[in-house]
């Protein structure tokens, strides 16, 4: 989270994407010059199957207000089954996070293929808008400060 001079909330959103589908889809949005919200920043991974749920927790810990995880459509995984394992893992994670009280609207799972530049732009806009409305993820950030105080 960061506030500028007029205290307008500019959400920080981190996107974990696979290099084969979504990263390339985001490239396509670029080459097609689609304009979209600037709050989402990408971390490239070989496959969504590589994404450890700790990455998501870490992102929030480091100040993110929202997270996107996006990879290949079911059946399109470059590595055959990575996105499928990822999906199963995130379902469990989802339940755990809801239980802990995290507003799951801050985490968006999606499928964006290399051909879906438009879908990427729309996804970014949609998530940015939603997280802007939800406001800064102060609850989690406060937790982190507490933790820092406890274990300096």
């Amino acid at each position: 989270m960061s506030m500028n001079m007029n205290m307008k909330f500019e959400p920080k959103i981190m996107a974990f994407v696979c290099q084969w589908c979504t990263y390339t889809g985001a490239d396509l949005a670029g080459t097609s010059r689609m304009q979209y919200s600037p709050y989402v920043k990408i971390i490239k991974l070989p496959c969504t199957g590589r994404i450890d749920v700790q990455f998501i927790v870490k992102a929030f810990e480091e100040g993110a207000d929202g997270v996107i995880v996006s990879g290949c459509h079911p059946g399109d995984c470059h590595y055959t089954s990575g996105n499928y394992y990822a999906r199963r893992r995130f379902e469990m994670f989802h339940e755990l996070m809801s239980f802990v009280g995290v507003d799951m609207r801050r985490i968006q799972f999606a499928w964006v293929s290399a051909a879906e530049g438009r879908k990427w732009a729309e996804l970014v806009n949609e998530v940015s808008k939603r997280v802007e409305e939800l406001g800064p993820f102060n609850v989690f950030h406060a937790l982190r400060e507490q933790a820092n105080e406890l274990n300096p």
Binding site: L45, P46, C47, G49, R50, D52, Y79, G82, Y85, R89
Partner: peptide, 17 residues
Amino acid sequence: QGCGGCIAICRAKACDL
């Protein structure tokens, strides 16, 4: 092939890519 699936599943954090 470097998909990283083994790393995310590893409970001991013994794998890395």
